[in-house]
């Protein structure tokens, strides 16, 4: 639980993007369709425009602030509502102050400009209410809880990210893959997002994974996909748990990127019945502790198996085989 030495503003602060315009060389102005930004997902995807020459974009944003922020008897003065856009990977932080709009001080509106050269992947955007409280200027008295995302890589405004799947021949492919030429796939977890490399030199694998054939083919395919996913989730879990930032008291922090998402999804199966924060601490302690974490491996495997929906794929296959046998017997 948190406590602050000043009065904060209760209630919900929310942010909305209402228009996005790409600006390019020679002052090109290209307003994006509203389908390029989703109010449901809270994502802006300039990649929708399919033009690659833009240099910066201007977002029109609107924040909604609880009415009591501007009530005459409030303890807050010099109220400011600012939108902050930041991306950790590029150490970029842009702040724009909004101006009060209609609706008696509840709506605040303004623009926020994003320079493309300043960002690499996903920038997040939040709104903060700032005021002077008890003579101290610049206090943050409220902030939005769910960030908006400006996703420079995606071509659709969706929050979920799909891991990259690359089909490549390992034998002639990138150097590091050549050593793996006899296996059907390899997971690379070192980049911005994990990549699954499917070996096209392993004959038939990509056709099987991507295909749609007889019922037997499809059963094998689903089982194969389940197997592949188990490998993926095991690998990404180990990567995520292996590179944690640790607080002074030894408590590990959740990473901010996909690693955090993966941990939050899988930890409840690795360490059941505990809050995820506790579970993370537990796994980290075991991994770095003297007693080792071999006893945790089955749990990690269990979590990956569940995440990959192996039980469902397998039971479907077994039932399918049964009925095929019955058909053959009849």
């Amino acid at each position: 639980m948190r406590a602050y030495p000043y009065r904060r503003l209760p209630g919900v602060v929310s942010l909305r993007v209402t228009a996005v315009e790409l600006r390019g060389p020679d002052d090109i102005r290209d307003p994006l369709d509203t389908s390029a930004f989703s109010a449901v997902e809270q994502v802006v995807a300039p990649g929708v425009s399919e033009r690659d020459d833009w240099e910066w974009l201007r977002m029109t944003v609107e924040a909604t602030v609880p009415g009591r922020a501007t009530a005459p008897d409030s303890p807050w003065t010099d109220l400011a509502v600012v939108v902050v856009l930041s991306e950790g990977a590029t150490n970029t932080r842009i702040t724009t102050a909004l101006a009060p709009g209609a609706e008696g001080g509840r709506q605040w509106v303004g623009h926020l400009d994003l320079w493309r050269a300043d960002h690499r992947d996903r920038a997040s955007m939040s709104v903060h209410v700032v005021a002077t409280v008890d003579g101290v200027a610049g206090r943050e008295i409220a902030a939005s809880t769910k960030d908006w995302i400006v996703d420079l890589k995606s071509e659709a405004p969706l929050r979920d990210r799909e891991l990259d799947v690359v089909e490549v021949g390992f034998r002639e492919g990138p150097q590091w893959l050549r050593g793996f030429h006899e296996v059907p796939w390899v997971v690379d977890t070192s980049g911005d997002l994990p990549v699954v490399h499917i070996n096209t030199d392993f004959e038939g694998v990509s056709d099987l994974v991507g295909g749609n054939g007889t019922s037997v083919d499809n059963m094998v395919r689903d089982l194969l996909i389940a197997q592949l996913c188990t490998d993926v989730w095991t690998a990404v879990f180990h990567t995520a748990i292996g590179d944690l930032e640790i607080e002074d008291d030894g408590t590990p922090l959740f990473p901010r990127d996909w690693r955090g998402e993966v941990l939050r999804e899988m930890l409840p199966d690795v360490v059941p019945d505990r809050p995820v924060e506790d579970a993370l601490g537990e796994v980290h302690r075991r991994r770095t502790g003297t007693s080792g974490w071999t006893d945790l491996q089955p749990r990690i495997h269990y979590a990956a198996t569940r995440r990959a929906d192996v039980p469902k794929a397998l039971s479907t296959t077994i039932r399918g085989l049964d009925s095929i046998h019955r058909g053959a017997d009849a």
Partner: peptide, 29 residues
């Protein structure tokens, strides 16, 4: 008029890609 643009086709089957999404998965325990 309203629909999100379709993602351009990438490698890997749709079936596989869907299984490899990070975030947003809610499992009840």
């Amino acid at each position: 008029l309203v629909a999100l643009p379709k993602k351009s086709r990438k490698a890997g089957s749709e079936r596989l890609r869907k299984r490899l999404a990070v975030g947003g998965r809610k499992t009840s325990r």
